[in-house]
């Protein structure tokens, strides 16, 4: 599975895919993209990495355990819902401290979705690959 072409291509593609995934996440509120699509692209990038360099290398490249990423994502989503409760609003009401910059609690929520998707996909591919 470890051909030279695949390795070289992965080295080039990896940063591009990661950037693209992040880009999709951030622009998702105004243009096609969002946490689901962005997360899938990032997950695909790491899966590619796993194919090229093996799963231990991909795990190292990810820096965190994918399962932990799931929990973090869920917590972020919950947090973005709980924040407005502190201000006396209903659960998951959107807060927009700086709408012009695109900063608001829905962004936190979307980052949460992003993390969950990456975590879910990578938990599956990594554990399956390690079989």
């Amino acid at each position: 599975m470890t051909s030279l072409i695949l390795r070289t291509a992965t080295r080039v593609l990896m940063p591009l895919l990661l950037l693209y995934g992040l880009f999709l996440l951030l622009r998702g509120h105004n243009a096609p993209g969002g946490g689901f699509a962005g997360g899938l692209v990032v997950a695909a990038a790491y899966s590619l990495n796993a194919f090229a360099f093996g799963i231990p290398a991909a795990r190292r490249a990810l820096l965190v355990d994918p399962t932990r990423l799931i929990g973090t994502g869920l917590l972020l989503a919950l947090l973005s819902g709980a924040l407005p409760v502190l201000f006396g609003k209903a659960f998951l009401t959107a807060l927009w401290p700086a709408p012009a910059l695109g900063l608001g609690s829905p962004l936190i929520f979307d980052v949460g979705v992003f993390c969950v998707v990456i975590g879910v996909v990578l938990t599956m591919t990594f554990t399956l690959g390690e079989e």
């Binding site: 105004n30 243009a31 096609p32 659960f91 979705v113």
Partner: peptide, 19 residues
């Protein structure tokens, strides 16, 4: 404050479903 309506539905209007 979002122009991608599908994404706004997912993360704001119907965020509970997405959760």
């Amino acid at each position: 404050h979002g122009r991608n309506i599908v994404n706004v539905i997912l993360v704001d209007f119907r965020a509970l479903d997405t959760l």
